[in-house]
Computed example of a mutant assay.
Amino acid sequence: MRIPSLATLVAGAMLSLAAPVPATPALAADPAPAPTPAALVCAPGAPCAQPLPVRVVVVSLFEIGKDEGDVAGEFQLWKARRGLTQRIPFPQSFHDLYYNPETQVLGMVTGIGTARSTAATMALGLDPRFDLSQAYWLVAGIAGIDPEDATIGSVAWARYVVDGDLSHEIDAREIPADWKTGYFPRGTQGPNDTRTPLDPAGGEVFAVNPALERWAYDLTKGIALPDSPAIVAERAKFTGYPRAQEPPVVLEGDTLSAMTFWHGEKLTGWANDWVRRWSGGKGEFVTSAMEDTGVMQAMTYLDRIGRADRDRVLVLRAGSNFTMPPPGVDAATYLLRENEGYAGLEAAVENLYTVGSKVVDALLGDWNRYKDATP
């Protein structure tokens, strides 16, 4: 094989450079990228000249695994079905935010418990990247449900949100013989002391805007919620509880928030007494949760400085499990079995979205009316 000389290679290269280059068809110009909203350029928590307008904040409390593609917790359906595709970093809280720039719906996951829900709500409310002055807030989560009131899969609009942590407590093994519980309000002399407890503005109870709550309930009470074999099988065990044995419904019912996942017939009785007491006899315990008083406390503070409107908060809870076992089953056995998976989880998540979306659609559909005045 004959190897060309260096001079030959250079001469060939020069000729190639001098030869005309055939014309190539012009490439179509790439579409201009969509402008990045100014709020996404702003640093989290830093001043922002053009904050994102928010019409509805959907407040989820937890997600089981990923935000999409696996078993759905409270957030997945909202993210997928409401087009919450724009991810917004939120390092000052538990979980990044997701936003739909067309509908101006913002999705938040607070994390479990009143500590995280309070911190997340305050962090969002104080973040200058968002204009929340006209936003409605929908707290939408799963819950334990009292079989005296409804079955799993049912969805309840809360009128009162009551805290189950702020209290005195004596271990049940050490309480006096005439006490039915060792849990009693601060400032009283025990559970048999019927005096009015401390100032109700102390964080033990929050009333949801009654006109807004009633509007949301009236709008959704006629929704027929689907039944399922899992719900049918579970509720059949609750003999002697007629409402627990009926199909899922939309109802009004109040929620008790506590950092402890409690369970059992006696604690369900305590929850009913506790809600009745703190609501002045006007409330009815229906669902048990862990975060709602935290959200309401933060909203109360944000309202005082004009960062959010406390009268635009709705609390919606769907029963994924019962707060007590069926007849013939002890509380410990039933709770430990439920910890392996709630019988009503799938139905609760689906029905929560169905009912909550009805309200979101109504607000967005008549925004020119509702942006300035609540229903």
Rank of each mutant, 00 (worst) to 15 (best):
S257G: 09
D273M: 02
D254T: 09
R307N: 12
R277F: 01
Q245N: 04
G319I: 11
L314K: 06
D309Y: 00
P248G: 09
L251A: 09
S257P: 00
M290L: 06
Y301Q: 14
T287R: 00
E284V: 10
G280M: 11
E265C: 04
R312K: 09
M299W: 05
A318Y: 02
A308F: 02
W262K: 02
V275H: 04
E284C: 04
Q245I: 07
T323E: 14
D254V: 06
G328V: 06
L267P: 00
T293M: 08
L316G: 09
H263W: 06
G253C: 03
S279I: 11
A298Q: 15
D292N: 12
V329Y: 10
M259G: 05
V313R: 04
D254F: 01
T268C: 08
E265V: 14
V286Y: 09
F322S: 04
R310L: 08
Q245S: 06
H263S: 03
E246K: 11
W278D: 04
A244G: 12
P325F: 10
V313G: 02
D254W: 00
D273A: 09
R307Q: 14
T323C: 08
L316Y: 10
P325N: 14
V286F: 09
L267Q: 13
D292Y: 01
Y301S: 14
D330W: 06
E284K: 11
R243C: 06
A258P: 06
T255N: 11
T323D: 15
M296W: 04
L316P: 10
L251N: 07
Y301L: 15
R312T: 08
D292H: 03
D311A: 08
V250N: 08
E291H: 02
G281P: 04
G328D: 11
G253Y: 02
T255E: 10
D273F: 00
W278T: 03
W278R: 08
G264V: 05
P247R: 01
R277K: 12
R310Y: 05
G283Q: 03
S320M: 12
M296T: 13
T323F: 07
L302T: 13
M296D: 14
Q297L: 14
Q245A: 08
K266G: 00
P248M: 08
V249W: 01
V329I: 15
F261H: 11
R277L: 13
K266C: 00
A244F: 01
A258R: 09
K282S: 09
R307L: 15
F285N: 05
P327E: 14
D292I: 07
Y301T: 15
G283V: 04
V286N: 07
V286C: 12
V249L: 01
L267V: 14
G280K: 06
W270M: 10
T293H: 03
F261Y: 09
W278F: 13
F322C: 05
L314D: 07
